[in-house]
Nucleic acid binder design. Structure first.
Lengths: 124, 124
DNA sequence: TTAGGTGCAAAACCTTTGCCATCCC
DNA sequence: GGGATGGCAAAGGTTTTGCACCTAA
């Protein structure tokens, strides 16, 4: 298993050539310049292999994933990795961290998203 | 605009009846008990309307969204809300926060995901 | 009366998978 | 040779959209 192939090497090279956290489709477009008949399925399969091997990571990013809540106050979440439930956390939201990161990085930070993960009380 | 309809009211009621952060499909299943011929499209449309009105929120949760990175060290990200680029942040990762939240909440926290947002240096 | 909402189905996306050919080890 | 991989296309899952009909105000 884990053969070295042109496709896999080109995918890894494309990923290393950027720090823009690309999507599979971006990588596909990029690699196709070199291997015009590579298929998107191959890109997905190799990204999966590279991830399993630890050469790359699939990023945990925050985004609206069509999960809804009628509780509209700003709060943090905890996700159980066993039962996959998401729980509201009753801990204070750190609003000052936005200012601190703005000062530290130069980006104009207006908000943040923080999620904890592990095992819930039932699954522990 | 913003008419009151049976469908919209049932959707909001379903959402208020739970704190499980449901998906559109869960809401669809739930509301269908009351309005058997409601369509999934209507659920999506009303969730969008309710969100715009501020009655509900669509949650910002962390997840693997098929964005990849060859930089495998643990680090935080900043997302520009104007140009939508994602930048690596060169600030220390707070590993202790997992322990603190474990102590405060009773959940067994083993990791967290933190993302900042706002405007990047170019867009500011 | 009429702008906005609904149901239905099709389209649009994105990701995975099955199949068979092909390529390395 | 034979298991791993690739190309292709079809299948899956989720969300959006076009359209004709309906309904609340």
């Amino acid at each position: 298993m884990d053969k070295k192939t042109r496709q896999k090497e080109a995918i890894l090279r494309a990923l290393k050539s950027t720090n823009s956290h690309p999507t599979a489709d971006w990588i596909f477009t990029e690699v196709r310049k070199e291997i015009p008949n590579i298929s998107l399925g191959t890109v997905y399969r190799n990204l999966k292999l590279l991830k399993e091997k630890g050469d790359i990571v699939e990023l945990d990013l925050c985004s609206n994933l069509s999960r809804f809540d009628s509780y509209t106050e700003d709060h943090y979440h905890f996700r159980c990795e066993n039962c996959h439930n998401i729980f509201d956390l009753d801990i204070p939201v750190d609003h000052d961290v936005n200012k601190r990161v703005t000062a530290d990085t130069g980006y104009k930070v207006t908000g943040h998203c923080l999620e904890f993960r592990g095992l819930c009380k039932e699954c522990y």
